[in-house]
Simulated assay, not measured.
Amino acid sequence: MNRHAAREKALQILFQLDMNDIPPEQAMEEHPESLEADDYLKGLVKGVAGHKDAIDQTIVEHLEKWSIDRIASVEKTILRIAIYEMSYRDDIPENVAINEAVELAHSFGDAKSGRFVNGVLSNIMT
Rank of each mutant, 00 (worst) to 15 (best):
R3F: 12
H4Y: 14
A6D: 01
R7C: 14
R7I: 11
E8S: 12
E8N: 09
E8K: 13
E8Y: 02
K9P: 00
K9Q: 11
A10N: 05
A10F: 05
L11N: 04
I13K: 07
L14H: 06
F15L: 15
F15Q: 03
L17C: 15
L17M: 15
D18C: 09
D18A: 15
D18E: 13
M19N: 06
M19D: 09
D21I: 01
D21V: 01
P24S: 05
Q26V: 10
A27Q: 04
A27F: 00
A27N: 02
M28K: 11
E29C: 08
E30R: 13
E30G: 06
H31Y: 12
H31A: 11
S34R: 00
S34L: 04
L35Y: 07
L35I: 15
L35H: 04
A37F: 04
D38E: 13
Y40Q: 02
L41D: 10
G43R: 12
G43L: 02
G43Y: 04
L44P: 05
L44I: 12
K46W: 03
K46L: 10
K46E: 10
V48N: 01
V48S: 02
A49I: 08
A49N: 09
A49C: 06
K52M: 07
A54E: 14
I55S: 04
I55D: 06
T58S: 09
T58A: 09
V60M: 11
E61R: 14
E61P: 02
E61W: 08
H62D: 05
H62T: 12
L63V: 10
E64R: 09
K65M: 09
K65A: 11
K65S: 10
S67L: 00
S67K: 10
S67W: 00
I68K: 06
D69S: 13
I71R: 06
I71E: 01
S73F: 03
S73A: 12
K76R: 15
T77V: 12
T77F: 07
I78N: 10
I78V: 14
I78A: 05
R80N: 12
R80G: 14
A82T: 05
A82V: 02
A82W: 04
E85S: 13
E85M: 14
E85P: 03
M86D: 04
S87E: 15
S87I: 06
Y88Q: 07
Y88P: 00
R89P: 00
R89V: 03
D90L: 12
D90C: 05
D91H: 05
D91T: 12
I92W: 03
I92R: 00
P93C: 11
N95S: 12
N95R: 13
I98K: 13
E100Y: 06
E100D: 11
E103K: 13
E103F: 08
E103V: 09
L104A: 09
A105Q: 03
S107G: 06
S107Q: 15
F108A: 13
D110Q: 11
K112D: 11
K112A: 14
K112R: 11
R115M: 10
N118F: 01
N118D: 10
G119L: 03
G119D: 07
G119P: 02
L121N: 00
S122H: 01
S122V: 00
N123T: 13
N123K: 15
M125S: 12
T126V: 09
T126F: 08
